Computed example of a mutant assay.
Amino acid sequence: MAHAKLTFDDVALTVNVPSGTRIIEISEKIGSGITYGCREGECGTCLTRVVEGQENLSEPSVLEQRVLKENLAGQNDRLACQCQVLGGDIRVRPA
């Protein structure tokens, strides 16, 4: 199984994760400042800035594209609950 190196700039921590892992899964475990309000009905709160490695993430789904647009997200922003790591090196931080 392919792995990726996922770095969270806000807590200066890099972890190896299996391909297919969603960023929010790891963010929760390591205490990164990437938060989410999905369970409270606040979609878009897990907005995450991809500092490096955008090409190593899954393509945004139609739902993710819509939420990003509604939140006026930048070109390097993604939803941590939606995007999956595919491999390589990725650096993220809370948006």
Rank of each mutant, 00 (worst) to 15 (best):
residue 88 G to Q: 04
residue 30 I to D: 01
residue 49 R to Q: 13
residue 93 R to N: 09
residue 17 V to P: 10
residue 75 Q to D: 14
residue 72 L to A: 09
residue 62 V to D: 15
residue 23 I to P: 00
residue 47 L to R: 03
residue 87 G to S: 13
residue 51 V to N: 04
residue 78 R to P: 08
residue 48 T to L: 07
residue 76 N to Q: 14
residue 31 G to K: 06
residue 42 E to L: 10
residue 44 G to N: 05
residue 92 V to K: 00
residue 40 E to A: 12
residue 34 I to Q: 01
residue 20 G to D: 02
residue 37 G to N: 03
residue 82 Q to M: 10
residue 40 E to M: 09
residue 58 S to G: 07
residue 9 D to M: 10
residue 64 E to L: 07
residue 91 R to Q: 12
residue 29 K to G: 10
residue 23 I to A: 05
residue 6 L to H: 00
residue 74 G to E: 12
residue 14 T to V: 05
residue 74 G to W: 00
residue 1 M to W: 09
residue 41 G to R: 02
residue 32 S to Q: 05
residue 50 V to A: 06
residue 37 G to R: 01
residue 35 T to Q: 11
residue 14 T to G: 03
residue 46 C to A: 05
residue 85 V to Y: 03
residue 52 E to R: 06
residue 79 L to N: 03
residue 52 E to C: 00
residue 4 A to K: 08
residue 24 I to G: 06
residue 77 D to A: 09
residue 74 G to S: 13
residue 8 F to I: 08
residue 59 E to C: 02
residue 14 T to F: 04
residue 91 R to C: 04
residue 44 G to Y: 00
residue 58 S to C: 07
residue 30 I to Q: 06
residue 26 I to T: 14
residue 84 Q to E: 15
residue 43 C to P: 05
residue 3 H to Q: 14
residue 69 K to V: 05
residue 69 K to S: 08
residue 74 G to Y: 06
residue 73 A to R: 00
residue 2 A to V: 14
residue 16 N to L: 09
residue 31 G to F: 12
residue 23 I to C: 01
residue 58 S to N: 09
residue 11 V to W: 07
residue 35 T to R: 12
residue 71 N to V: 02
residue 21 T to I: 07
residue 83 C to M: 10
residue 50 V to Y: 02
residue 75 Q to S: 15
residue 28 E to R: 15
residue 16 N to V: 11
